[in-house]
Amino acid sequence: MPNQKQKRLLVPQAASALDLFKIEVANELGYPTYGFPAITPENYREVLRRMKYEVAGELGLDRFIREGYWGDVPARLCGAVGGRIGGKIGGNMVRRMIKFAEQNLAQPR
């Protein structure tokens, strides 16, 4: 399917580090860590999954996905879940990365 967009990481080995960073930023924004004492490479996927379901519940989509199946959820509503998570968290991730880069570029070598 040549017309489909494919999301590929330029550095696939960075995927888990990016997910951990996403959870760190989400936690700072007030998203709960769901009783995990610490987010680790072993449990971060479960934290992200729970975060997704919590946002879906806040948007009133839980009636569609009570059994963990998203197939009956209209695409527009799925986009609302991704937008809520991706927009706010992703924007803050970018801000932090820019701040980090600016601080490191300003340091003399």
Rank of each mutant, 00 (worst) to 15 (best):
Q4V: 13
L9I: 04
L29P: 08
K7A: 11
Q6T: 14
P37E: 14
E58D: 12
V81F: 11
V55S: 07
C78D: 04
R50H: 06
R8H: 02
N104D: 08
A38Q: 14
N43Q: 02
Y69A: 07
L77F: 14
V47M: 04
C78V: 07
I23Y: 04
Y34K: 06
V25G: 04
T40P: 07
L77P: 09
E54R: 13
D62K: 12
R66F: 12
A17H: 08
L48Y: 00
Q6V: 15
A14C: 03
F64E: 07
R49G: 08
K88I: 08
I98N: 03
L61H: 13
N27T: 09
E102F: 00
R66H: 06
E42T: 12
E102S: 01
D72W: 07
D72K: 14
Q6E: 15
A101Y: 07
L10S: 07
R76P: 03
G30Q: 03
R109E: 12
L20K: 02
A56W: 06
Y44R: 03
E46G: 00
F64N: 08
G87F: 12
V81M: 09
V11Q: 10
Q103E: 15
E24P: 01
W70C: 10
Y44W: 09
N104S: 05
P108E: 06
Q4N: 11
S16V: 01
R50F: 05
G60P: 09
